Amino acid sequence: MVELKTPEQIAKMREAGLVVAAMHKACAEAAVPGATTKDLDEVAAKVLADHGAKPNFLGYGGFPGNICTSVNDVVVHGIPSADTVLKAGDLLSIDAGAIIDGWHGDAALTVFVGDGHSAELHELSRVTEESMWAGIAAMRKGNRLVDVSKAIEGYIRRQPRPSSGKYGIIEDYGGHGIGSQMHMDPHLLNYVERRRGRGPKLVPGMCLAIEPMVSLGTAKTHVLSDDWTVKTNDGTWSSHWEHSVALTEQGPLVLTAPDGGRAKLAELGVQTAPDPLG
């Protein structure tokens, strides 16, 4: 069953989404050479407390952090640690979430730590982020779930190939429904898998976390002995971008973007829904 939200519930998710946006801003600013990923987790905890929000990552399945901090060849679910010291040239994914009155927000972004990043890494992040926006733009009433997957994969496949020969669209992880829980039906692949069919129809009240994960090589991953940290099998670096999005009668609303996604979706010719918080 896919949970459909009322306008009032979407407004609460928007509140949670703005807390996530504030977490991202503060953590990205703190992600400097010499900082530890534990430092970033403490920054995130302060933002949550300042907004009267709860973390949805801390304690989830036993996860020990307020955010996920995934560095270089870690795709997702990196555990914040005082032993992980950021250095110039690192590529960092910050995945953050918040709960307001029982309603969830969840988003991720890729951050360049210091200087010294290759043009190829900048392009990897750009391709991943733009594929997310292509998926968001496909979140239209009457489309089906597979249309979002198709838009994400299609954007990535149309880009010039990196020197490694291909972009790997990570296979074992994807987007998901979100609302009264962080992870809900439906599961959203970042590529089209024919045997899964077209998936549910997209209707107002549906909320999805759209999150492509792309590497400079393989699509295959493995989990480390901590049962959380996910790395690429070939050691290639990856990028991860995510927004939580609500579909309304007036169009999509990007719950975790400060402007609701208005500016970026306007570039793509998509009208966004009015912000319920003004």
Rank of each mutant, 00 (worst) to 15 (best):
A49P: 04
T221I: 05
G61S: 00
A138D: 11
A246M: 03
T229C: 01
R195Y: 14
L265S: 01
L265P: 02
K201F: 10
L253I: 03
G142K: 01
P200C: 03
D95M: 12
L253E: 05
S93G: 14
D234F: 01
G260S: 10
K264M: 10
T248D: 03
H222P: 05
E120I: 00
W228V: 00
E153I: 00
L121H: 13
V113Q: 14
T248N: 03
L40W: 04
A263L: 14
A31M: 12
A266H: 04
D83Y: 13
K141P: 08
Q250E: 11
P274H: 05
Q250T: 05
K231F: 08
T6N: 00
P80S: 01
G34F: 09
R144L: 08
T128D: 03
L188A: 01
T218G: 02
A219N: 06
K5E: 05
S225L: 15
E42Y: 15
P55N: 08
D95A: 15
T110C: 12
T128H: 02
G114D: 13
L268K: 07
G61V: 00
T84G: 10
P80A: 00
A246Q: 01
G217F: 01
A28I: 09
G235F: 02
I169A: 03
A44D: 01
G78V: 06
D185V: 14
G116E: 04
L145Y: 04
F63A: 00
T37E: 04
V20G: 02
E120S: 01
T272R: 10
L253M: 03
I210S: 11
R198H: 13
V146I: 13
L265V: 01
L124G: 09
K87W: 08
S125M: 11
S225F: 15
A82E: 15
G114V: 12
A151D: 06
N66E: 09
H176Y: 06
A31D: 12
E15F: 10
A209M: 14
A31C: 10
E3C: 08
V270G: 04
V71S: 13
E15W: 13
H183D: 11
M139F: 13
M132A: 03
A266Q: 09
G165R: 02
W237H: 15
P186E: 04
S93P: 08
V113C: 12
E249F: 02
G116Y: 06
P200Y: 02
L188Q: 03
A96M: 07
R158M: 12
V20E: 04
L145V: 02
T221W: 09
G142V: 01
E29P: 06
S244Q: 09
T272L: 12
G179A: 11
V74P: 14
D227F: 05
G174H: 01
M206S: 07
M139I: 07
R14H: 07
E129A: 08
D185F: 15
Y167F: 14
G154Y: 10
L224A: 10
I99M: 08
D50Q: 14
Q159W: 05
G197R: 00
V146H: 11
Y191C: 02
I178T: 15
L58Q: 08
A30E: 06
P276Q: 02
L91N: 15
L216W: 09
G269L: 00
Y60W: 14
F112Q: 07
A108Y: 12
N66C: 04
T272V: 13
M184C: 04
G175V: 03
D234V: 01
V75Q: 13
I10V: 04
A53F: 06
V75W: 15
E29F: 08
R161F: 14
R198C: 15
A26D: 03
